[in-house]
Every structure is written in C-alpha cells, then in structure tokens.
Nucleic acid binder design. Sequence first.
DNA 1: ATGGTCGGTGTCCGA
Length: 266
Amino acid sequence: MRIATWNINSIRHRLALLRRVVRALDPDVLCLQETKVEDGLFPEAACRAMGFDHLVFHGQKAYHGVAVLSRIPIAAHEILSWGGNSDARHVMATLDTGLEIHNVYVPAGGDVPDPETNPKFAHKLRFLEEITAWFAERTVPTAGAVLVGDLNIAPLEHDVWSHKQLLDVVSHTSVEVAKLGRLQRTQAWVDAVRRFVPADRKLYSWWSYRARDWAASDRGRRLDHVWVTPTLTSAVVAAAAERRVRGWTRASDHVPVWVDFAPGPA
DNA sequence: ATGGTCGGTGTCCGA
C-alpha cells in the first residue's frame, strides 16, 4: 500500500498534473493540501475517474483546503480545526482496515519569526500547540496511524539548503522545530521518510517559485512529511520525495512525498 | 542586500 502527500496549490488549476502524478506514482491513498476550493466546486468526478472511489474533502474559498483521495474504502472521517478559526487544515480519515490517516496543513507563518509583531507566526505556533494538546490526549489506534501533510517546518539541518542561513527564516527557526518535536513526541511519531534518506543527506520537498532556476540554485526545504506510529515502522519498506515532479509543466512549488507499506500485518 | 513567482480573487492577499 502506498500513501502519498502533496501540496497541490489549487486542485482545479492542476488537474492535468494530478492525473500525471497519479499515473506515475499510483498511490492507494493521496492526501492533498491547498486544494483552494470550496466543497461545492471540488472536482469529485475527475478524482473518481482517476480511480479514487473514496473521497473526503474539506475546503474553503481561495485558501487552504485538504482532501483525501483513496482507492481503499474510508470507514469514517472527521474535520478538525486548530488555531482559533475555521481554516480547512486537518481532516482525519479512518480506512476500513482501521488505519487512521491525518492529513494536515500547518499555517505557513508569514515572514517575520516573531509572534509579538507577526500575527501569522503567532497563529502558526498556536495551531501547533493546539494540535499537540489534542494528540497528547488521544490513544493510538490498534491498527496504527499515519500523519502526513505540509507541516511548513523543516526540522533537520539537512532539511534545508543552508541550516546557517535559514536559522532565522520561518520554517526552520528553533521555536518551530521545538514545537514540531513536541507534536512528534505525542504519539512517538516516526519520521518515515528519513528512515530511507539518512539525516546527513539533503532532502527537500519544496522549492520557491521565485528562483530563476529552481534546480540549479536548489534552495529547497523539506516541508512535507509522512509520520507513522511506532508499530507501523517495520512495515514501511520504501519512501521518497518526488523531486522530478517540480520540473513538470505547471508544477506546484511542492512535490509529492510517499511511503510504501508491506502487505499484511506489521 | 534585494527581489524574485505563483493562484485566486479582485484592483491585493497569502504562499
């Protein structure tokens, strides 16, 4: 079973690219962020035509929005909200196997890493505190859980092109990394992708649109993550961030990240 | 040291 996550940056603008990604990666479950579409306008038929018979989408006009596209039946889902507003940033889908999937889009946090002067950064920190408190009270399901999404934080030194130059840049500051660490410890979440790409090797999932040549400058960050609860760790047999997708026509600034699970009991 | 580009929406905002 393959689970993928991708910040698509407008699902309606990128339906052709979505088809191409689905053909190339053939995920069983694809979690999208920044769909940027309200539920009434979600391209449901197009997703079904790609083989995803089971859909959960939770969006709003213009901003944010998360969706779970699945070939595996979804038994239940829940819309969750953190940070003091009703932003569409977290949906939980429980597969009929009992596996719980959390699709999360953490606020970007603006430009200035100071919660006193930048309300967007304050909102990001509050979102992280609230989701952390919720997971801390929650029991890990028997079948395990997966947390994926655009977490908008690159926690490790080699999750960014220059650790030194990004220490004061939102997404890599110590306060954000510490908060992400607290979230990770709530259910002892394991960073599944870094099990396959060691921490001393550069790994990115996002490259800014603003670079003249994103591939040549290669100033990327790993903002998109796949975490699994401990009992699932040994079932994860492969993982990757699909760098090549950044070069495809009409690319998102984020690329898909995926994890493969071995069949059968973990 | 600065500005660079997107998408959705509307004459800018958020990323």
